[in-house]
């Protein structure tokens, strides 16, 4: 291809024009970003209450002092996130598969799975956490786990319901012709699900699944309502000590930093999925 090929005058002009355009758009983007940034900074710092807000939300000394405690709390969030995400994904997958079962024998299972997803997508997470963390110990059963586990269970149950719907959407998106092909080979319904439908379904819904995991990442902070000292609770304690809200900002920044890698992975997976879909056609 390359040997002996010289771009025509027309093509060289086109290339040069495109390059000039590219340079211009980069410059334009830089200028507009700078303008907008300056405007924002001026608007915020020029506001009448800025000095007081800065003192009570952005105090560097308090930020430094509260950081170790908040970080300590964040370690709990991370562990809770990993365990809850894994369990919620498992619950979601199982419930989604249960909802697809056919036949009269499975009616109660199906009904239960369906009402579960309806109910826990409707109830606010905070209420579920309260009910689990304060209601279940109220039963005074022996062997009742601690509030941390109960709070985690509330997260798993709530997110499991959302993830179940995502998985179900994936299962339903697999074309019926794939099922026909699998069944025509003699595969049973279970084998078809296991080897043909679910692998395709999970690949397809990987981006929304990961996105829900990002949402779970921050909602893990809500278990602080039940009492365990996570990053949010640690920030609250530090806030109460100084009557200064900076520890909350510290916690917020840490949560964002925690989410960044997960968000990056989600974007990457989404991009890859989109590319694969385009390649298919």
């Amino acid at each position: 291809m390359t040997d002996g090929y010289h771009p025509s005058e027309q093509q060289r002009q086109r290339t040069a024009y495109r390059r000039r355009r590219a340079v211009r758009s980069v410059l334009l983007a830089a200028v507009s970003t700078a303008v907008l940034g300056t405007l924002l900074v001026v608007a915020v710092t020029g506001s009448p209450g800025w000095e007081r807000v800065r003192a009570s939300f952005f105090d560097p000394r308090i930020a430094r002092e509260s950081l170790p405690a908040v970080l300590d709390g964040l370690w709990l969030n991370i562990r809770l996130l990993v365990v809850c995400a894994a369990l919620a994904l498992a619950v979601g997958l199982v419930v989604a598969v249960l909802r697809t079962l056919r036949g009269p024998v499975f009616f109660p299972v199906r009904a239960l799975a369906t009402s579960y997803t309806y109910m826990f997508r409707g109830v606010p997470l905070i209420i579920v956490i309260y009910l689990f963390a304060f209601g279940i110990p109220g039963l005074r059963l022996t062997g009742t786990p601690g509030v941390l586990v109960l709070g985690g269970a509330a997260l798993v149950v709530t997110y499991g319901a959302y993830l179940a719907e995502v998985f179900r959407a994936g299962i339903e998106s697999v074309h019926p012709s794939q099922l026909a092909a699998a069944r025509s080979l003699g595969l049973s319904y279970r084998q078809t699900m296991r080897h043909v439908v679910l692998p395709q379904a999970v690949r397809r819904v990987a981006p929304p699944l990961l996105n829900d995991t990002v949402a779970l990442q921050k909602d893990v902070g809500l278990v602080s309502l039940a009492g365990p000292i996570d990053a949010v609770r640690a920030a609250q304690i530090a806030t109460a000590e100084n009557f200064n809200y900076t520890p909350y900002v510290v916690a917020a920044v840490l949560f964002v930093l925690l989410a960044l890698p997960l968000i990056a992975v989600t974007d990457w997976v989404t991009l890859r999925a989109a590319r694969r879909q385009n390649a298919g056609t």
Binding site: A180, G186, Q200
Partner: peptide, 20 residues
């Protein structure tokens, strides 16, 4: 039906290979 289908092969208009 699974036992019957083991004895019958079927090929479809749209191939229906498993893409994964």
């Amino acid at each position: 039906p699974d036992r019957v289908r083991r004895r019958i092969g079927m090929v479809f208009q749209s191939f229906n290979l498993f893409p994964h």
